Amino acid sequence: MTKPSTDLIHHPYTPPANFAAPQPGIYKASTVFFADVAAMRARDWKTKAGYTYGLHGTPTTFTLEERLATLEGGSAALLVPSGLAAISLVSFAFLKAGDEVLIPDNAYGPNKALATGELANFGITHRLYDAMNPADLAAKISDRTRLVWVEAAGSVTMEFPDLPELVAVCRARNVLTALDNTWGAGLAFAPFDFNGTGQGVDISAHALTKYPSGGGDVLMGSVITRDARLHHALKLTHMRMGWGVGVGDVETLLRSLPSIGLRYAAHDRAARELARWFESRDEIAQVLHPALESSPGHEHWRALCGASDLAAGLFSVVFDDRYSTEQVDRFCDSLQLFRLGYSWGGPISLVVPYDIGLMRDQSVARWPHKGTLVRFSVGLEDVADLQADLARALGRL
């Protein structure tokens, strides 16, 4: 007869199956049990036909992966600890010493930092290209180019490129394309099927930290493909790098994901209203929002996102150059509802001032204004309250 401590660990009770509820079950596991040695040896960690080890997937992580693949129109997804980890996974899976990667000059800054740091240390070179000029991309693709990153809209400065043309340039040269799809979130446009043409990017990387989470409290990323061969390569690198995500964060994403469409549309409506209001202010030299006709690449946004008419909850403004950086910083400090903080997609509105001169390669960038740029992430507060907060802070310039 076994002792109580053993009985508690090896208790025979199993709850009945077929329990159904709005939220899927949460499975926490590193170790996964097998019925016998034959089952252990037959199980393949690279498929979703069964379970081998918590790092390779549980019913909970598989459920989130499948839902994210559906959201973006892909066939397979992998989860990683952050959006930057998603970018890293793609780069590590498809680049080796002697290869080259091309990155848009207006890309997410840490993507470029990865290229100048770890990728360079591994003997992988990179070059920046002008995302608003497909001819520049075409001219810079070389025999060593194995991967091209694209991003829509551009980070901070919000230019919207001609994504179909950029992808066509790469496809004609048999070069992989990877999209940072955090802004579009699978809602503004279909990354693998531009406007029903059947053409799109090869890989989509997504910072789930932003709109899929929606709470400003989760760090996670995903990499999604439609190509089984690409997914296999990503899966192998994913395993070798030992990337995993916490099941508590997966549970949070599964609870948040059903409302992403409602939240994304609400962020979008509020951001557009405030962006148009800023256009009327003489303190501002330019408002950068893809849905505004005056914003760079508006026609490309209209062509790609016209069916959804969605444009996320981000926009930037460039202050007139009569205002010093110190004055603009004081404007940001004076805001009460907009909090100073990185990231976006949560319920609280955020603001960050940037020095674009330090962020852009001046041989690539074509920046018409010299004033300080400020990016806004519009949350879910009442728009009238946010506008009043902005007006008060502008009054203190």
Rank of each mutant, 00 (worst) to 15 (best):
T2P: 10
K3S: 13
I9P: 02
H10I: 03
A17V: 10
A20G: 00
A21T: 14
A21D: 11
Y51K: 07
L55H: 00
L55P: 00
H56R: 03
E65W: 05
S75N: 14
A77S: 15
V80C: 10
P81I: 06
G83P: 03
A86M: 00
S91F: 01
S91W: 01
S91E: 14
F92K: 11
D99A: 08
A107N: 01
N111E: 05
A113M: 15
L114D: 06
D130E: 12
P134R: 11
A135F: 08
D136C: 01
A138V: 08
D143W: 07
R144C: 00
V156E: 12
M158A: 08
D162R: 08
L163W: 10
L166M: 14
R171G: 08
L176E: 08
G184V: 05
G184S: 15
A185Q: 09
D193E: 00
F194L: 03
N195T: 12
G196S: 06
Q199E: 14
A207H: 03
T209I: 03
P212F: 08
G215W: 04
G215F: 00
G215A: 02
M220A: 15
S222N: 07
T225D: 05
D227R: 07
A228E: 06
L230P: 04
H232R: 14
A233R: 12
W243T: 08
V247Y: 09
P258G: 00
S259D: 13
I260K: 03
G261L: 03
L262I: 05
Y264E: 04
A270H: 11
R276K: 14
W277N: 01
S280K: 15
R281W: 08
A285W: 03
S295G: 03
E299W: 07
H300S: 11
H300Q: 14
G306K: 12
S308C: 02
L310M: 14
A311P: 07
A312W: 04
L314R: 12
D321V: 00
T325F: 09
D329C: 10
R330C: 09
C332S: 05
L337F: 07
L340Q: 03
G341N: 13
W344H: 14
G346Q: 06
S349H: 10
S349V: 13
L350E: 12
I356W: 07
M359S: 12
E381I: 00
